[in-house]
Design a protein around this nucleic acid. Structure first.
Lengths: 68, 68
DNA sequence: CCGAAATGTCAAGTATATATTACAAAAATA
DNA sequence: TATTTTTGTAATATATACTTGACATTTCGG
């Protein structure tokens, strides 16, 4: 999987550390880290929680127009 | 989790059975069934594959503007 | 009505998302 | 520079997404 730089950027835009975002959405810091690094494949529920915390939608952070 | 009626509708709109959609996205029929029934929480990767197969985006099928 | 296709559902197994603990390295800040 | 905060990463453990196989029920075309 590819790095999620959009997530990283949106988080930075809200001035949140991985730790703080993790607390907001109720997962561990390592989980946020792994998602940003593209090391895994979160569930839709977690994606939604992240998007709500950052005031964006799924398409903003998790959709690529052209991907295989 | 709530039933995913938008998915059911989009699938119907493409005249695909659960089985056919499952084959298109590479999962079992039971998995598609469970997602439509709201019995679990698919991964973002599977959500993307489903959206591509049905020519819609994540927001179309997996985003709710106002949710808990 | 009859048969086939589609859907719902259950049980047992496998793969993987996520947690926890811990430590090192990098980046920010005093 | 010294100190703190943030990030990267690894190992072990647990919860759950997903599979396979099987059967019952519903839906739909002949």
């Amino acid at each position: 999987m590819a790095k999620n730089l959009k997530l990283k950027a949106a988080r930075a835009g809200h001035d949140l550390s991985q730790q703080q975002l993790a607390e907001l959405v109720g997962v561990s810091r390592q989980t946020i880290n792994a998602i940003e690094k593209g090391e895994y494949n979160p569930t839709i529920k977690l994606c939604r929680a992240i998007c709500r915390a950052l005031d964006v939608t799924l398409n903003d952070l998790f959709w690529e127009e052209n991907e295989e």
